[in-house]
Amino acid sequence: MNRISGYFKSLLLVELLRGMAVTVRYMFKPKYTMRFPMEHIPKSNRFRGLLALRRYENGEERCIACKLCESVCPALAITIDSAPRESDGQRRTTRYDIDLFKCIYCGFCEESCPVDSIVLTSIHEYYFDQRGQNVVNKQQLLAIGDRFEKQIAEDRTLDAPYR
């Protein structure tokens, strides 16, 4: 009996038609595609993306060359040299390099920073087209911070109640 019903089932294409019903149902479902450059997936304000160095509102750089980020970095991605600044003798970095290939975007540097200087922004769309561009220096990091300061400050304000 079972064999006969199975025979007729396959002869009447029952299972094939059932499969086609599934695909045609999916045809009218809303699509998952995100048209990437035009559309973006919503991002958390805690998103850990490209690194940046921030400044105070008067334009003074925040970093005081305490090197806590360098020592906490689990991937040894940060390299810092420091010296007294020539104009006023304050302790400042002369070199602040981050190797973005080594960086694992853990955010420890941001956690450890006493002056909120090094931060992880929500930028995740960036690329290098030449060898060596993966190492970003102090000027570049400050420029990133300047450019996205508004976003960075907003993300920090949103997260503040939970810290």
């Binding site: 999916y26 479902k29 699509k31 998952y32 595609t33 048209r35």
Partner: peptide, 13 residues
């Protein structure tokens, strides 16, 4: 286009 829709994609746009 149709195969894209059935895969819950958009197809060429």
């Amino acid at each position: 286009k149709v195969i894209g829709w059935m895969h819950v994609r958009l197809g060429p746009t």
